[in-house]
């Protein structure tokens, strides 16, 4: 059984948003419903100013708080690792959105499409989803099809590596070893961070993220 994980190599991220648009294109997501994100972070002052990008997406937690709270089992943890959604079952209660410490879920409340009042071909499916929760699935269906996640396939910086972390010979396992990628504890995500990037800009471990959310 494969165990899927993803490396986000922040030393290679170009801040180009190809991952964001690739995901929107693949799933035809509505305006404002984004499964992943790219956020500029800065530190230091001229002439020693620094700027990098944070990459956000579902962390595909091991003991996923979202899965625990879902009253109808619409969101589940697959054996291979990705946390997925069953839109047929989702009742849109939004408990998982509250529970997610990484803000990775969106409750769709607006019947909006890209072009006002019009459903384009690529929106046929997504436009049916209203009053339910959407999220990144680590492109589970694509992975089962032997394809990489869309955001990985399109990344011009080659900052995203996906694969079977249980296989030491896989591309991702080798990448983790070679580049000293650090697993975000309790999740399926590994990070390669620029040496000088302040820790506060890196994703917290699942336990710390839960604590931080509770403190808010």
């Amino acid at each position: 059984m494969a165990k899927y994980g993803m490396v986000l190599d922040l030393t290679r991220c170009l801040g180009c948003y190809a991952c964001v648009v690739a995901c929107k294109m693949c799933y035809g997501t509505r305006p404002g419903v984004d499964y992943n994100g790219v956020k500029r972070v800065e530190w230091g002052e001229y002439p020693d100013a620094h700027q990098r990008y944070q990459l956000t997406m579902c962390m595909h937690c091991d003991n996923a708080p979202c899965v625990e709270v879902c009253p109808v089992k619409a969101t589940t943890k697959t054996e291979e690792g990705p946390v997925v959604m069953d839109y047929e079952k989702c009742i849109g209660c939004g408990l998982c959105v509250q529970a997610c410490p990484y803000d990775a879920r969106t409750l769709v409340t607006e019947d909006e499409t890209a072009f006002d009042g019009q459903v384009m071909v690529y929106e046929e499916e997504s436009s049916k989803r209203l009053n339910l929760v959407e999220k990144c699935t680590m492109c589970y269906a694509r992975a089962q099809n032997g394809q990489k996640p869309m955001c990985v396939d399109h990344c011009p910086g080659r900052a995203r590596i996906h694969g079977d972390v249980s296989d030491p010979e896989s591309e991702i396992s080798k990448y983790i070893a070679e580049h000293g990628a650090v697993q975000v504890e309790g999740t399926s995500i590994w990070i390669v961070a620029p040496a000088d990037m302040p820790k506060e800009y890196l994703p917290l471990s699942l336990a710390d993220a839960i604590a931080a959310k509770a403190a808010k």
Partner: peptide
């Protein structure tokens, strides 16, 4: 082959 944001958005 890694298509940037502008490339992918040609669908729109």
């Amino acid at each position: 082959p890694n298509i940037c944001a502008k490339g992918a958005a040609q669908v729109q």
